[in-house]
Simulated assay, not measured.
Amino acid sequence: MLIGLNQYLRMAQHDERLARCAGRRCDDIPWVLLRRLAHRRRQKGFYDAFTLMLFRRAWQRSRRASCLLDYLAYCRDLGRPLPLARRAELSDALPALHGRRFYLAQGLLAESGGDPPTQWGEVLREVCRCQQTWRSQFAAHVAQCRDQGICVVGNAPVMRGSRLGSFIDGQGLVMRFNRFYYDPSSAVDSGKKHDVWVRSPSLDRAPPAAVRWVVVSGPDVIFRLRNWGALADIVEQGVPVLTVPLEVWRALVKKLMAPPSAGLLSLAWLRQLLGSWQGVSAVGFSLGDSNCPVPRATRHHWAQEQALLRRWQADGLNLVSDAAKETEHG
């Protein structure tokens, strides 16, 4: 029976109909297999009520501390902070958790008003202490730059041959991502200005020179990210290191039913700060046309992201693909 269920769940991770059949058969499936299916769906970017139900059932069936943490951590993935009603339960589970899991549980408790994790270094304490001030300063700076223009520069191949360098460098604020690459020979397409650097939590690259703001993407990762050492030098230099407010992440997850990319998350944050798309341009984003293939499979659901970009474009976002079209738009 166990072998048959194992095979069934392996198929279910690729087939939504089979997965939901598995959900209805929860009483017949060992909790360890429910947990496995939940983790596989999370890894594939299924951020939905059904996956949440699988995590919850696995915890309810097992009553293990690790399954409780899995469930609460997935709630946080969806943008939901730790409920006050679960604080005591998670706190009681701490002795049974170790390593990364122990740190994650401490972070959830700290975010809900508990004591900061004992492993916090000075860099993380500084980021946490200054976060609200830095966010307020960033919001004011974004508003000041609006009239001159704010440009979010993606890394899609559509930038090649776009001749958008002058347009980008003429903006009041330019935002770039992760391992963006500047080559003088490509400046005519991608420009060279970079005011805001958005990096993924796991990126090990040093910050680019002369950057004015650093944003760590993801669902407000202050209480989740363990390694802040890569940002120690830039924090000491006085460069603000921001995280994205959890409500911005939560709203996008609700629309996409998947974790948003850093590009979409940054655009949504700008929209929240400004109240409209006035003054905001996006370049280097693919809409799925034949000239710019969809990126390889990841946890992001690119088709949904492209559909949302089109809706934002209809609402006023200046989505630019090349210099000729920008001249026409202007």
Rank of each mutant, 00 (worst) to 15 (best):
L5F: 11
Q7R: 13
A12P: 08
Q13M: 03
C21L: 12
A22P: 09
C26Y: 10
L37T: 03
R41H: 11
K44M: 14
K44F: 07
F46S: 11
F50I: 03
T51Y: 03
M53D: 12
Q60T: 02
S62E: 02
C67R: 04
A73L: 10
D77P: 01
G79P: 00
L82T: 04
P83D: 07
L84Y: 01
L90I: 05
S91N: 14
L94D: 07
P95S: 04
R100Y: 01
V123D: 10
E126P: 01
R129M: 07
W134N: 13
R135C: 08
S136T: 06
S136P: 00
Q137R: 05
A139R: 10
A140Q: 12
V142F: 06
V158H: 02
Y181D: 15
V188D: 12
H194S: 10
P201N: 05
S217M: 04
D220K: 00
V221M: 08
D233V: 09
V244P: 01
L246Q: 09
S261I: 00
G263L: 02
L265G: 01
S266V: 01
A268E: 10
L274F: 06
S276A: 11
Q278P: 00
G284N: 05
L287D: 00
L287A: 07
P293E: 09
V294F: 07
W302S: 09
Q306D: 00
L309A: 00
L317I: 05
L319T: 00
S321V: 08
D322H: 15
